[in-house]
Design a binder for these strands. Structure first.
Length: 479
RNA sequence: CGGGGCGUGGCGAAGCUUGGUAUCGCGCUUGGUUCGGGACCAAGAGGCCGAGGGUUCGAAUCCCUCCGCUCCGACCA
């Protein structure tokens, strides 16, 4: 891997200062711009193009499982937000409020939605009557607002884009199955499209969503060994539906409360993408999500035949369904190489007079830097293979990073030593008590990430209280 | 919200201690030569120095207030 040579001075070296590297990449790859309001970010065309691809792919998946899109209001009356007490306690500290309409003070202040459970519930009280109305399988693509104190591009915006799925079911079993199905949908998406290995797990009571009965998560490890929650799926039981008095008549002619779920994935995942795959030369985008999969660079473009050959090559790739961009600007080839590396384009193709003579082009992989000559006779197949190889290599490298940095720990102090050193996921047993979880934070400096769905089933002892228990849990430092 | 660093053409910086005509690199524009890892030459354009107030004959520079960015904490599905 020829990655030790940094081509782009403008980007801080990743291992020198990871946080600065991250910010540099967001800016230099033209993903994001700052605005005059703290915590509000602009997704520039290239950044938004990544989100558009995420939307298209996920939206199609949601529709395969029967979900439909809706659009809910931006504002929530305070009285509505307060109907479920755990929920309002969780969100009230970070709500922004509208108090004026024109020049007049509003009778009741309105919260800018931080999440829309209450809006969906309010709607459902009016439209759900019979078991025949269930399940309700709704989703919306929108932005929400949370008044965060500190903000970072993609990882923590005050306003961020996401999708929030909200569903209602006749039985708890059905609702739990929905929660699990959507978690798996996110996990597959991360692995198969974003080349991000994830751990499917369940949050502890302390870490679960305000108002939820159970919260499921996919946890990803970033290159700096910190954890990022990639998406969540919640099972609500009938807590909200009881608080909002949503009822339906079941098959036995009984009035009962339905069971509810919600699940969300936000632009934060783009931050995860950057921190999972990026390197010293900038962003690296996995091929299946990259807005541009192949950048074609003509070399000595002024010489006869070069631009034509480059154009023909692009046409063939485009016809094969590959997202390709021809850069015929008058920047030098070297400038273009650096530019597309910074922007994480997975594959670059160079074509110059020498190649044309030999009936070939040169393909350069973004992940390894490796250059190979590609015969024009086998162009489409070779490019498709290379893109596929890049996806698998990115996944494998991310997985190796996670496996190499996951450690078994026996005490909170052992956890602290690792967390304060190189960091990583820390694996132990857990007795299930809040006291021990808090002690891990206090003495170990780590928070619980999740209890993996795939449990070993073995018996061990809680690292804090020493009680015998079987639950596997992962700890770590999170974004 | 606490502690540190920072704010000067589009970007990155120097100038501030010791007040006196706005400086450099990159980028941008035009023309020419180049073109296989961020090319070169020449000529240009572009800045009420984050905002507001004060001190002074005079403020990028000194003093106060505010805002923003950033890092570390706290907080945060």
């Amino acid at each position: 891997m020829a990655q030790d040579r940094r081509q782009v001075d403008a980007i801080t070296a990743r291992d020198t200062d990871f946080a600065q590297w991250y910010t540099d990449v967001c800016r230099k790859a033209e993903l994001i711009d700052y605005t005059s309001v703290k915590g509000m970010f602009i997704l520039r065309p290239y950044g938004y193009a990544i989100w558009e691809n995420i939307m298209h792919i996920l939206d199609a998946e949601f529709k395969k499982t029967g979900h439909t899109n809706v659009s809910m209001p931006l504002l929530i009356p305070e009285s509505l937000l307060q109907k479920e007490k755990d929920h309002v306690q969780g969100f009230a500290p970070e709500c922004a409020w509208v108090t004026m309409g024109g020049n007049e003070k509003l009778e009741e202040r309105l919260c800018v939605r931080p999440t829309s459970e209450t809006l969906f519930c309010d709607h459902w009280t009016r439209v759900v009557h019979s078991w025949r109305d269930l399940p309700m399988l709704y989703n919306q693509w929108c932005s929400v607002l949370r008044w965060e104190k500190t903000s970072r591009p993609f990882l923590r915006h005050r306003e961020f884009l996401w999708q929030e799925g909200h569903t209602l079911h006749a039985t708890p079993q059905e609702a739990v199955a929905e929660t699990e199905q959507q978690l798996e949908c996110y996990a597959k998406f991360c692995e198969d499209v974003l080349a991000m290995p994830v751990i499917r797990g369940k949050k502890t009571d302390k870490e679960k969503f305000a108002g939820a009965e159970a919260t499921y998560t996919i946890e990803c490890m970033m290159h700096d060994h910190k954890a990022l929650q990639g998406g969540t799926s919640h099972y609500f039981g009938n807590g909200f539906t009881t608080a909002f008095d949503i009822t339906f008549t079941d098959k036995n002619n009984q009035q009962v409360h339905p069971y509810q779920t919600s699940w969300g994935l936000s632009t934060r995942i783009i931050g995860g993408l950057i921190m999972t795959h990026g390197d010293d030369n900038g962003l690296i985008l996995p091929p299946r999500i990259a807005p541009t999969q192949v950048a074609v660079i003509p070399v000595a473009a002024h010489k006869p035949g070069v631009l034509d050959a480059a154009g023909a090559l692009c046409g063939r790739l485009r016809a094969a369904g590959i997202r390709v961009k021809l850069d015929d600007s008058d920047n030098s080839p070297g400038w273009k190489f650096a530019e597309y590396e910074m922007k994480g384009v997975p594959l670059r193709i160079e074509i110059g007079p020498r190649d044309i003579e030999n009936g070939q082009c040169v393909a350069a992989r973004r992940d390894t830097g490796e250059k190979t000559a590609v015969s024009l006779d086998a162009l489409e197949e070779t490019v498709e293979q290379l893109l596929d190889t890049i996806h698998r290599n990115l996944y494998a490298m991310a997985l190796k990073n996670r496996e190499d940095n996951t450690f078994d720990i026996k005490t909170p102090e052992e956890a602290r030593a690792i967390a304060e050193g190189k960091g990583g996921f820390l694996r132990s047993k857990w007795c299930g008590s809040l006291e021990c979880e808090l002690a891990m934070k206090e003495r170990g400096g780590v928070s619980s990430r999740c209890m993996p769905l795939r449990q070993s089933g073995t018996e061990g002892v809680c690292p804090v209280c020493g009680k015998k228990c079987t639950t596997d849990i992962l700890w770590g430092v999170a974004y």
